[in-house]
């Protein structure tokens, strides 16, 4: 159904017009919790891009070559989440051994990612949309970058906003959601580009 869509179109659409955070609301929990500072957001963002790209590839392979032939597609939720969790665990161990600098930058965010709904969301979307392998990887990578873009922008705004006066009831989550809403409006401006 979607075979004819180009890889680049999917990639850019995932970043801008169909941003996983601002149009599908996935990964909101960590988005709200970690977006206080640009530096930590960058760390989490990088980890998300990496994990999302790899798990979308892995899950595609598992789905196509294991679940479909065995007619176990209804088990996909469990299988996907296990693949994601195992992958994150392995990556964490490798990074810990290989590079201390990288571990300090990314390591603490990795466990958080297992429960990030955006990661599972990407895998589920790619199955529903019937993407090919290359399309899935492009979609995973694009979604990760889109998520990172959104959280970086939000962190920048929140750092500036720390000094401004916000109505008492809106402090914290409230104002962050309003900013996210305005950001989503801005991103809607991209629609029609691709």
């Amino acid at each position: 159904m979607h075979r004819e869509i180009g890889i680049f179109a999917i990639f850019f659409a995932a970043i801008f017009t169909q941003n996983i955070l601002l149009t599908y609301y996935l990964g909101m929990c960590s988005f709200l919790a970690v977006s206080r500072q640009v530096k930590t957001s960058l760390g989490l963002g990088t980890a998300v891009v990496f994990v999302m790209t790899s798990t979308s590839a892995l899950n595609w392979l598992v789905y196509r070559f294991l679940l479909v032939p065995l007619e176990l597609t209804y088990l996909r939720f469990i299988v996907f989440i296990v693949v994601i969790a195992c992958f994150v665990q392995i990556v964490e161990m490798i990074i810990e051994r290989v590079s201390e600098v990288l571990y300090a930058a990314l390591g603490i965010f990795l466990p958080l990612i297992t429960v990030n709904c955006a990661i599972l969301g990407v895998s589920l979307f790619m199955i529903i949309r019937d993407y090919t392998f290359a399309q899935s990887v492009a979609y995973g990578c694009g979604s990760g970058l889109g998520w990172m873009l959104a959280i970086l922008a939000m962190a920048g705004i929140r750092q500036k906003m720390a000094r401004s006066r916000v109505p008492k009831g809106l402090e914290g989550a409230g104002i962050t959601l309003i900013v996210a809403g305005i950001m989503a409006l801005a991103f809607m401006g991209f629609s029609g580009v691709i």
Partner: peptide, 14 residues
């Protein structure tokens, strides 16, 4: 659409 959801939840929390 997407932004409405953000605004609505923010207003509710407020």
């Amino acid at each position: 659409m997407a932004p409405g959801a953000f605004f609505m939840l923010a207003i509710f929390i407020w």
